[in-house]
Nucleic acid binder design. Sequence first.
DNA 1: TCGAAATTTTAAGGTAACTTTAAGACAAGA
DNA 2: TCTTGTCTTAAAGTTACCTTAAAATTTCGA
Lengths: 223, 223
Amino acid sequence: MKILVVEDEHRIAQAIKQGLEQESYAVDVCYDGEDGYNTAANDEYDVIILDVMMPVMNGFEVCKKLRADGNHTPILLLTAKDQNRDIVQGLDTGADDYLAKPFSFEVLLARIRALLRRPQDVFGELLQVGDLTMNPNSHEVRRGEKVVALSTKEYAILEYLLRNRGRVLSKNNIMTHVWDFDAEILPNNIEVFIAYLRAKIDKPFKGANLIQTVRGFGYKIDA
Amino acid sequence: MKILVVEDEHRIAQAIKQGLEQESYAVDVCYDGEDGYNTAANDEYDVIILDVMMPVMNGFEVCKKLRADGNHTPILLLTAKDQNRDIVQGLDTGADDYLAKPFSFEVLLARIRALLRRPQDVFGELLQVGDLTMNPNSHEVRRGEKVVALSTKEYAILEYLLRNRGRVLSKNNIMTHVWDFDAEILPNNIEVFIAYLRAKIDKPFKGANLIQTVRGFGYKIDA
DNA sequence: TCGAAATTTTAAGGTAACTTTAAGACAAGA
DNA sequence: TCTTGTCTTAAAGTTACCTTAAAATTTCGA
């Protein structure tokens, strides 16, 4: 899967590139609209991520031009928080989805997955460990038969753990994947959320505790 | 991408095979569980599609046996519509996803794509000496079948030894590699940790002692 | 738009696990 | 046998994590 990121802020562009590559996507980066347009026109990508505010040629223009060329690659627009009224315009230019900055990496990943998924895939994939299941489409989490209600952050952390089943994830990993790029939180915050998750998906059930602490390194989920 | 289909109903098996081949997957087919297990065990596949209801050996058994072998290939179970309550059991055996019959081909394709998107390298790297293994991703250390729990420092020292298998490492080497630059510890501290490690990975087991003292020089690990 | 409820964040105290130190016993080599 | 390096043991010191609760923030319905 090949993704093109067009974003003039190097720090953000690099963070996205690095994160996506860790998810084993192939990522190319362009730092302005014109370069982005040329790259997108010459190469085939599975998804294009376009920042709106950019020098030389903004995201809307790039998007419009690509569509005019008959290019149907799914496009995800990145907008600043207070540009919400521009979104309608953005989608009018032929973009498929948008995301307001700042956003967490997990949310970005989820949107990309959604764009890559075909419309027929109504039920989607199922993430599971032992008798714990998560349906990313319906957002439903179950332990055995019982449905478990999770808050946004709880859900995001659990999803991240499940998508890396068996692997130890540091608090830093969790922080950079679940929180906004520029968020600054205490490590203790992660501990608190892990405790919340355990209280909901482990403690009330007889079976093995799925969320495991690996002292000095982080946490992992495994049966 | 290579896919194994294990399904006793020839009509369905052939339909799946044909459809997947049109999507340019390489497809092998087995018509019963035992044959399926043997094929999966001998060949490397990217995804295994397993019918649950099968003669000789059912899908659950095949799945369980493959996982017991340490095979982590993504497995998609096919269940009959009214077997939903078996699903929990199915996922407990280590399957990654399931699909209730009858299903559309598009849904099957989407699920396969989802499975292929998963990070596969979670169980990739494995450090090994004799029957001692360390998985840096899951942080799991085993001697034979037995999982061994190590503290942070114990783990770090063992990892350093394993990455330099057969080479003699001085206490100073270990100190500078495992501790902070400015840490000041006694050489005796290393001896203590080596003793802890031996107590956990050598003493309780019949086989050869893996951690060896080289008097005057340091320690090495070797079979 | 306001207020209540839910969620997220911060903070502090407790605890078990881990690390370090120290001192005496032991073993190998001269 | 003596010296020196290593091993063992236990106690003291430290740290990472967990728990709890209150403060801050966000969400959402009236």
